[in-house]
Simulated assay, not measured.
Amino acid sequence: MRNLGRDEMLKRLEFFIGEWEIEVIHPQFKTSSIKGQTLFDWMEKEKFIVQRTFIKQMEFPSSTIVYDYDSNTSNYLQHYFDSRGVTRLYYMNLKSGLWELWRNSSDFFPIRFLPAFCWGNQ
């Protein structure tokens, strides 16, 4: 496959755009399935895709995911944030009808911002 640009690769995810009903099956819950909704939409003039998910069971966190594409690794990036304060970085790929999703770091890590500049008098 030729090396496609970031904007073109994000456009390939456009089929997600819209509101979806989701069903979660979890072995720790007695119910057969847990219902929820997820919404995909463009963000920042179609430079990112954002996904917001809400599960209708208190034990499940709501989440926001921002999708990006890394041309250097030829992988999509999922920047995951949830209502527990958890953040994760996932890698994603769509090839031959298969959706792959993985991460290379530990389960939980806090958001850490490094100051790019300081306000006020130095």
Rank of each mutant, 00 (worst) to 15 (best):
P115A: 10
V50A: 08
R88I: 01
R112V: 09
L101Q: 14
K95F: 11
G5P: 14
I34F: 03
E59H: 09
F108R: 12
I65W: 00
M92W: 11
T64N: 06
L4W: 04
R84C: 06
S106Q: 14
N93I: 00
N121E: 13
E44K: 05
T64E: 12
R12A: 10
I55Y: 13
F81H: 10
H26G: 09
R103E: 15
F29L: 08
S62K: 10
L101F: 06
V24S: 12
K35H: 11
D7Q: 13
R6A: 03
G18C: 03
T73L: 04
F48M: 08
Y67W: 14
K56N: 15
M9F: 02
Y91A: 02
D70A: 07
G36A: 04
F117A: 07
L89W: 04
W20N: 11
E21A: 13
F15N: 02
V50S: 15
L94I: 03
I65C: 01
F48H: 07
T53V: 04
S74F: 02
T31S: 09
T53S: 13
T87Q: 15
T38L: 06
Y67P: 05
Q37M: 09
F16R: 08
Q122E: 14
P61L: 06
E23T: 13
I34Y: 02
V50W: 07
I49E: 00
F60S: 07
R84G: 07
P110L: 03
F40G: 00
R6P: 08
G18W: 02
F117Y: 08
K35G: 11
L77H: 11
I49L: 04
A116E: 12
E21I: 01
F16Q: 09
Y67A: 01
L13Q: 01
V50D: 08
F54P: 00
L13D: 00
G5Q: 11
I49Y: 01
R12K: 15
